[in-house]
Computed example of a mutant assay.
Amino acid sequence: MADGTGPALPDGTGPALSVLDLVPVRSNQTSAEALTAARSLVRVAERHGYRRYWVAEHHNMPAVAATNPPVLIGLLAAATERIRVGSGGVMLPNHAPLVVAEQFALLEAAFPGRIDLGIGRAPGTDPVTRYALRYGAGGVDDSAVERFPEYVGNVVSMMEESGVSMAVAGRTHELRATPRAAGRPPVWLLGSSDYSARLAAEQGLPYVFAHHFAGKGTAEALELYRTRFRPSGDCPEPRTFLTVNVGVAETAEEARRRALPQQHAMLALRTGAPLGPQMLVEEAEATTVPDQHRGLLEAMAGRWVLDEPAGAAAEVRRLATTYGVDEVMVHPVAGAMASEPADAAPARERTLALLQQAMAPARSGRD
């Protein structure tokens, strides 16, 4: 099945590939240079036949420029012609449902048939930034998180051509995300626990478990989603895919070396260490890892796909078969050297090109 619903892949085939981008900001980059690198990376992804390109929502992080998915999606979709562009994801409790619906209805109108709306429930930031983002105008409560299922339904309905009706002061008011919708982007639920798996199954929505971030619990979440799934008009069968941290280079040693900056960033995040811009490879190599954290770093690397092209392709195919998906979303974790251009990400581009080229023989004649 072409939608990643669950069957094991037949011999001689491979999964479709997509891309997840957090738009990392390196120690020698400005935000503008990081965005220029992202525009170049999405063009590489399109040129090599990747299915979709998603950007995440994170706030007030010195190494991440992906703060506003709708703005980024507009920039990236305008820089390409065919690849699907979407959010992985919009953190819905940070926003009014109508605002999200309006943003993505307009994106769908501008780039019909190319937009995905991935929705998450996590804040995507620290508590102080969360306060400033959600409640700076006054009032603090968790109703947005508690009402997440309702808000997901609201976003979907508001993007429909018919919109929704609201009863206020004895009168019925019509709400539409855009005056005359000709289509609606598919809505995906994202998560790293079983909460979103259950909700996606109940609402008949596509679902993605954050395997690249959680590293465990993937099989259980996908099984829960598939067994409890209730068909809907938009999604008659369970639909999912796998997300994986991937670094590919000419040699496995170089792939592991290039992944060091991202590993140090994740280690700092998981251990509560101060966060900074993403290191260059040379900076990561010169950084001493405390003995008590070496095991965590090694375990992290062991869950990532860091290899030469043939080995990486084989591992991606194995993961797709293990989890019963026919699409894998690659988060390219290859870092940069000090000598490389600040407005480009050559190793991330190489990861996408080398992996797709290595996967291509397995898919020859498939489409």
Rank of each mutant, 00 (worst) to 15 (best):
L92E: 11
E57G: 10
R180V: 13
G124D: 01
T178V: 15
E102C: 04
N94G: 00
I115T: 14
Q103D: 01
V99L: 00
A122S: 04
I83R: 01
Y131G: 09
P97Y: 12
G89V: 06
P97C: 14
W54A: 10
L72W: 09
V55W: 06
A122I: 01
A101F: 08
R84G: 07
A144S: 15
M159Q: 09
G153F: 13
E174T: 01
G49T: 12
W188L: 09
L107K: 11
G153W: 14
D141S: 08
M158L: 10
P123M: 04
F148E: 13
L190K: 00
L75H: 05
A78Y: 07
A77R: 00
L72E: 05
S165I: 07
A79T: 05
M91T: 00
V156H: 02
L107M: 15
D141T: 04
P149E: 02
A77L: 07
P186Q: 02
V152E: 11
R52P: 14
P70A: 14
V140I: 10
V145C: 05
G124N: 02
A137I: 11
R180E: 13
G113D: 05
V145R: 14
M61H: 10
L189Q: 02
R171A: 03
V99D: 03
L133P: 00
V90N: 03
S87M: 04
M166A: 08
R184G: 11
G163L: 12
P70E: 12
L98A: 11
Y135K: 06
G86D: 01
S143A: 10
R82Q: 12
L92Y: 11
T80Y: 01
A66P: 13
P185V: 03
I119Y: 12
R147T: 12
P62W: 10
R180G: 13
P62C: 08
H173Q: 01
G153Y: 10
D142Q: 11
V168N: 07
A66E: 12
A77E: 14
L190V: 04
L133M: 15
P112C: 03
P179D: 11
W188Y: 07
A78D: 03
H173L: 08
A122Q: 01
S143P: 00
V128Y: 00
I119E: 14
F104M: 05
S157M: 14
A65D: 09
G120F: 08
E146P: 00
R114W: 08
A109W: 03
S143F: 03
P123N: 02
A144V: 11
W188P: 02
P62Q: 11
G139F: 10
A96F: 09
R121F: 02
